[in-house]
């Protein structure tokens, strides 16, 4: 692309973007400040804008007042299993839609895309009835894992990637060598799909970790995810804001860490999805 022919940024552009980044980052920085101080400090006028020394004490408090350890473990288990399942099912299905000829593939793909429009909330009442009365899974982790085991976004995302990134010649060569379809998947598709799989994995992990509505419906404070524990921290009548924001910090740290480590790939993934979709 003609990047070197793009207009070069002037001071105004830097200033505006700098302000945008500041507005984006500041609330999270403020969370760190509040989580490392006490309730009185947060309420001082003019506000104190530098971190204090109370962070470890607050984290200890948050862990002793709620089931935060259990919640973190639950969220880790659910997010990891959902991510593994979504990445695998999406890669297999995406490969089939991208490269395998089969009857009905076009209308079926259109169906996949159409289902992305259906709001998840529409089925939440029956879904709860199914989980609670039929399967007796309410308040069990499988109620969060099984319904999320595959989704249309992931399937379409992998399909879009493999259509362009997986050369037909490679597959034909594999067929001539006598590969079964499973052999093709193992030796050609999985290695080719790896970059897109890692982007999808990160996006899925973050979305699952952050999910609030469905866990709120089907789980209780006896067996919470981290987002539920966080809302529990905030539901007391008299709030200790340094404690609430400590919870927000603990709940956000894992995804922010993933983001800082793999941010560049996530950006590429979002932008590629935009132009190909």
């Amino acid at each position: 692309m003609s990047r070197n022919r793009q207009l070069s940024a002037g001071r105004g552009v830097y200033a505006f973007l700098g302000a945008a980044v500041l507005v984006s980052v500041f609330p999270l920085y403020w969370t760190l400040v509040a989580a490392s101080r006490n309730n009185t400090d947060i309420h001082s006028v003019p506000p104190i804008l530098l971190p204090g020394a109370n962070l470890l004490h607050n984290i200890g408090q948050a862990f002793s007042q709620t089931d935060m350890g259990l919640a973190l473990l639950n969220s880790l288990i659910v997010s990891s299993l959902v991510t593994a399942s979504v990445v695998l099912t999406s890669t297999f299905g995406g490969f089939a839609f991208a490269k395998l000829p089969f009857r009905g593939s076009r209308p079926l793909l259109a169906t996949v895309v159409a289902t992305m429009m259906v709001p998840t909330q529409l089925g939440i009442i029956p879904l709860y009835i199914m989980m609670a009365n039929w399967f007796h899974w309410a308040d069990h982790l499988q109620a969060l894992i099984v319904p999320a085991a595959a989704n249309a976004f992931g399937l379409f995302f992998m399909r879009q990637y493999l259509v362009t990134s997986l050369p037909d010649e490679l597959l034909d060569a594999g067929r001539i060598d006598g590969c079964t379809t499973r052999g093709l998947v193992r030796h050609i598709v999985l290695p080719t799909a790896r970059p897109a799989m890692s982007v999808l994995g990160m996006l899925t992990f973050m979305a699952t970790w952050n999910d609030f509505y469905w866990p709120k419906v089907v789980m209780t404070q006896q067996n919470p995810t981290i987002q539920l524990t966080l809302s529990e921290l905030a539901s007391g009548y008299i709030k200790d804001y340094s404690l609430v924001l400590t919870g927000a910090l603990v709940a956000s740290l894992p995804v922010i860490a993933v983001f800082l480590l793999m941010g560049r790939q996530i950006i590429d993934g979002i932008m590629q999805g935009a132009t190909k979709g």
Binding site: L17, A20, V21, S24, V25, P27, L28, W30, T31, M206, W209, N210, F212, Q227, L230, S231, A234, V244, L245, G247, A248, A251, S252, V255, I256, V258, F259, L260, G263, R264, I266, I267, I270
Partner: peptide, 17 residues
């Protein structure tokens, strides 16, 4: 990265902040 950062934090955390 800076402008995308808000998007990775959860609804619950962001709202409480």
């Amino acid at each position: 990265l800076g402008v995308l950062l808000p998007n990775v934090t959860s609804v619950a955390a962001v709202t409480l902040i």
